[in-house]
């Protein structure tokens, strides 16, 4: 930034909280991660002023790639107004003074927890995932020394044993989120706890996808236009979730839906988990079956304004 420009952030801290040395170290890890898609790069993660497990990995990655002129969007569960998304957005407003937005298409960097936005991403955008557990094999093998060997030698048979067990027991694969993927035909990778509904969006995506795990101190990445294949069997292919319902507010029938309990007699409605996507559709005149219902509209209004006491 130019010297004459006034700092727009809290000057008690370096731009984006981390010092420049730390950012350079993290950028080197990110470059390595992009060069070896799906490989978990250990990095000297720092303690952040937000708790481990609350997005410290994603925050460090965002802090290392963000510039003063970038526009940031932060979502949690697909929504811009969930508490932790608000908290992280406030953090970057304070320590980096960047513009923030709720519009997917306007954002240069989108930090996310548990979802990929419904609107397609474009070249030049960076999607930063918060990752609680980067190791897809961890539930099968607790030891890091062993899982690193399994990745090194591409010994992934055990992961298929898990899927086999699902089919033997239920007749179908019962993993619904954190559904493991093979990246670039080489590394088994955890997509973070996104629903498997979102897995196909990772494949061949024009945006850069970066994954930060703060507590476990790992960074990994999917470069643009990279092959990302969800694990499956030839005769039991991968299937994302589907709904019989469509969004009660905007009528979308191709988005991930959250269930909203309306009363204590089993009454419920389904609405888009991606709040911006839903608003955008309603602004364009789309209406769902409860689109004119006062209760549903009240919900939509509360959701839009992010009111909670």
């Amino acid at each position: 930034m130019s010297a004459v420009q006034e700092a727009r952030w809290d000057e008690a801290y370096n731009f984006a909280y981390l010092d420049e040395q730390t950012k350079r170290m993290i950028r080197r890890s990110i470059l390595k991660a992009i060069a070896v898609p799906g490989y978990q790069v250990p990095f000297g993660g720092r303690e952040m002023p937000l708790a481990y497990g609350w997005g410290t990995g994603g925050i460090q990655v965002t802090a290392s790639v963000i510039g003063p002129d970038d526009t940031l969007k932060v979502i949690d569960q697909g929504a811009d107004d969930t508490t932790n998304a608000v908290s992280i957005r406030r953090f970057f407003s304070r320590v980096a003074g960047v513009e923030t937005t709720e519009a997917t298409e306007e954002a240069d960097i989108i930090q996310t927890r548990h979802r990929i936005p419904e609107a397609p991403l474009r070249e030049g955008q960076v999607l930063v995932y918060q990752v609680p557990q980067p190791e897809p094999l961890r539930s099968l093998e607790p030891r890091e020394t062993e899982t690193r060997k399994m990745h090194g030698y591409a010994e992934y048979g055990l992961m298929h044993v898990r899927l086999y067990e699902d089919i033997a027991r239920y007749g179908h694969i019962a993993t619904t989120y954190s559904y493991p993927v093979m990246v670039n035909g080489r590394y088994l990778m955890s997509p973070s706890p996104i629903p498997k509904f979102d897995n196909p969006k990772m494949q061949g995506n024009p945006a850069i996808q970066l994954f930060g795990a703060g507590r476990e101190k790992r960074i990994y990445a999917i470069p643009p236009y990279t092959s990302v294949k969800s694990l499956d069997f030839d005769d039991h292919p991968f299937e994302p979730q589907t709904w019989d319902e469509s969004c009660a507010l905007c009528g979308a029938d191709n988005s991930y839906l959250d269930e909203v309990v309306l009363d204590d007699h089993g009454g419920k409605m389904f609405v888009c988990s991606d709040t911006h996507f839903c608003e955008d559709r309603r602004a364009k005149g789309h209406r769902g079956e409860l689109g004119a219902d006062p209760a549903a509209l009240a919900f939509a209004r509360t959701a839009d304004e992010g009111e909670a006491q």
Partner: peptide, 25 residues
């Protein structure tokens, strides 16, 4: 593997060397 079914136990080595057809396993 005591927590994996008999079929999964038998199939593990095959899956480790690339078997990806549930029916054949």
């Amino acid at each position: 593997r005591m927590n994996v079914s008999a079929g999964g136990n038998v199939g593990e080595r095959l899956m480790a060397i690339g078997a990806r057809h549930y029916g054949e396993l």
